[in-house]
Computed example of a mutant assay.
Amino acid sequence: MTQDAANDLLMNGGGGTKSAKFNTLGDVVRGTITDDPKVTQCVKFDDDGKPTDEKAFWKSGDPMMQIVVTIQTDQRDPDDEDDDGKRALHITPRLQPAVRDAVKTAGAKGLAIGGIIAVQWTGGTGHGKGNARQYAAAYQPPQVGADLLSAPPATTVQPTLTAAAPAVTAPPVAAAPPSTIDLLKASTPAVAGPPAGSNIDPNVWAALPNEQRAAILAAMGLPF
């Protein structure tokens, strides 16, 4: 057991991070990745769509695996005063093609801490044959704070959602606008501009996680 896992067990009683949920068609989950992605086995769901304690397997007998990535979101549970906004995004086999294409489109080799990921439920209900849920995803790789002080201003990247092709052709349940997600504007609150004397592009500065902005300011001897 790693130190992070041990501390999670200690502080959360084994409950772990809240899971990211898509409750309504068109819902979007987005946030900054805070931990290295992990691979776990999927679980089966009951007829009401709730997870069970039973592990999921393919028809071949092979375990059905998923990627779990912890992201920092702006979501808060009003009934949980200790909710810090972290959510576990379960990238199931159904969702993996969309995320894979989004990572490739971003020119990245994989999901990384500091990257911003957004996923949207775009179609299907998940109930009944030929009506599997469909998703779209976008990804923004992490910015390297140390390089921003000397690099020329960067162009703001506006990732385009990459949708996973449904396994079975079926009419969509409903249209789910918008067709794109503006990751940088949607996931980052308004912040002050870049420090004076730097050549950091304001859009890049606004997209940085608080930790990277703090590190840059500290390196310049400025308060955060």
Rank of each mutant, 00 (worst) to 15 (best):
A56W: 04
A176Y: 07
Q96P: 00
R133I: 03
M220I: 08
Q140P: 00
P178V: 03
D8C: 03
D4F: 11
A207V: 04
L25Y: 12
K129D: 10
Q72W: 05
Q3P: 01
A190N: 12
I113E: 13
L184P: 00
P178Y: 13
K59G: 00
A102R: 05
D80E: 13
D48M: 09
Y135S: 01
G110P: 11
G126N: 11
Y139T: 04
L10P: 00
G110V: 07
P194H: 03
T162H: 12
P189N: 10
R76P: 05
P78M: 07
P209N: 06
V173C: 01
Q96H: 11
N203S: 14
K50S: 06
M65D: 05
P97V: 07
K44D: 07
D74M: 13
G14Y: 10
F224R: 06
P97F: 06
A163F: 08
A108K: 04
G193S: 12
V103F: 10
P177F: 10
T105P: 00
P223R: 07
D27P: 06
P37E: 12
D84Y: 08
P93K: 09
P189V: 04
S187P: 03
V119T: 09
G124H: 05
W205E: 02
V144K: 08
I117P: 03
P37K: 13
G49K: 04
N7P: 00
T105I: 00
K18D: 12
L184G: 05
V168C: 00
A132K: 12
L9C: 00
A108R: 06
D53H: 11
L89K: 05
P194R: 06
T105E: 15
D47C: 01
P97D: 09
A214Y: 02
A6R: 15
T160E: 14
L148E: 03
S198G: 06
V43S: 01
G107C: 09
D147W: 10
V29C: 04
V69N: 04
Y135H: 10
G26E: 06
T162P: 00
I200Y: 04
Q134L: 03
F22A: 03
Q66M: 15
V69M: 03
V68G: 08
G193Y: 12
P37F: 08
L217P: 01
D80W: 11
K21N: 09
